[in-house]
Nucleic acid binder design. Structure first.
Lengths: 245, 245
DNA sequence: GTTTACTGTAAACGGTGTAAACTACTGATT
DNA sequence: AATCAGTAGTTTACACCGTTTACAGTAAAC
């Protein structure tokens, strides 16, 4: 019973995957996702898709989740390209990969990261982008021991939030002294997210985007607080190499 | 002849304004702009709109331009609420106003500032958001004379871009020593834009958005480089007052 | 006073999301 | 192994969308 029942829902999952894949393909190529176009791509009719998605909005949400998982995979792979004992290079690798992916896939980036409607992504069980950067930053701290603000020095309301963070779920069961790391994480993420979004939507001189001046400046800004001042020349070269690909 | 000819194109401009207004109303309330809904709002039929907009995309672009002009007006008004001889307060006022407007009008913000298609806004003749902040920052420098990076110290490619900037057009005919101010402007704008976008799209703990912790931290980050360290306590209070409204 | 240009309508075409009814098929139950 | 139920798909239909075409009225231009 189990084997065949699995076969059934496996086939369901398989065509679901094909649907999402076709939808992503359409998003990238045509710039929009249409139920009928997706169905056409699979040799089906549009109403058939309602066996797999409750609505068009639901399908788009599935696409967004798939993209999110994809970028998470890419970022992780980029970090793993660097030595395991070099958390600075790993963080840089993931950061550059995120930026390059965003610039190369503007529609997908816009769907996942600057969308008013689709926001149920954070609830997904798989480790999202935020959690990956969280882990990379934690590894960086373990090696470099850069200063972490004490929760007592921060605004009381902010400290309370940091004691019970929502997004980076893998920082639970972490001692009080390190909770300030969450604040550093949020601020670093805001800088990366903000810079990449600005670049993607071109609200700045395009030449600055092309030559990545702002992106580099953003990273170098953060090197000091993250204890990476001494590593900067080496990391600069690493960034140049990664950007050149 | 002139008076009546003006009357004609004035009426054209008037109904154009009514169309754009109705479209903005629909964008805010229904979350989308359709030609038929706009026409219904004005007691017309959809094809009539083609006398005023070449296409649906064109109409959306007109809406985006109207929103951009609106936010420019609001920001300018917010700056003018502060004393003319207090450029720090004026910059803070405009910055807070921009953030509050963005959080209160997410659809409109998304249309103008995080849109892949609509990008012809920069070409508009009226002074856009970027130019307003540019003027405010220049006034700030005139009073506080904070250090400006020399173009020679920067990356040569970057220096060349800064000598011939595209976006802030009112910085032409400005001496070489001040051209580094453009770089400061771009970086400050990237931080404001990035923080606000992150807050609008809620890619961070919502409580941090509600209590504006990240927004305040972003501003305080920039106080030092902008020569405002001594003014910080006073500006902090100003921000609190502006946010409370 | 005639002509011209502008502003609007009506009808229609193809495309969209979605609901309902219906038909095969196929995996699970007996 | 035969039956049954639910799954996956189609067909049809509806309301809405952007857009084009042809046409009518009306105000301006000469």
């Amino acid at each position: 019973m189990n084997a065949q029942a699995l076969t059934r829902q496996q086939s369901h999952a398989a065509t679901t995957a094909r649907i999402v894949s076709a939808a992503r393909h359409l998003l990238v190529n045509r710039g929009e996702v249409t139920l009928r176009a997706v169905a056409r791509e699979l040799g089906m009719t549009a109403p058939a898709l309602y066996r797999y998605a409750a609505s068009h909005e639901d399908l788009v949400r599935m696409v967004a989740i798939a993209i999110d998982a994809d970028v998470a995979t890419r970022i992780t792979a980029a970090a793993d390209e660097q030595p395991a004992d070099d958390p600075a290079a790993r963080l840089i690798g993931a950061t550059v990969e995120f930026r390059q992916w965003a610039l190369g896939n503007r529609e997908e980036f816009a769907l996942v990261f600057t969308n008013v409607d689709v926001d149920c992504i954070d609830e997904v069980s798989s480790p999202g982008t935020g959690m990956i950067f969280s882990a990379l930053l934690f590894a960086l701290w373990e090696k470099y021991q850069f200063p972490i603000p004490s929760l007592g020095d921060l605004d009381p309301g902010l400290a309370e939030i940091l004691r019970d963070p929502q997004v980076p779920a893998d920082l639970t069961d972490v001692p009080e002294e390190i909770r300030g790391l969450v604040w550093i994480l949020e601020r670093a993420w805001s800088r990366l997210y903000g810079t990449v979004t600005l670049e993607v939507f071109r609200h700045i001189d395009p030449r600055i985007v092309d030559e990545a001046h702002l992106f580099r400046a953003m990273i170098e800004d953060q090197a000091g607080p993250l204890g990476l001042s001494d590593e900067l020349p080496r990391l600069r070269a690493l960034i140049t190499g990664l950007l050149a690909r």
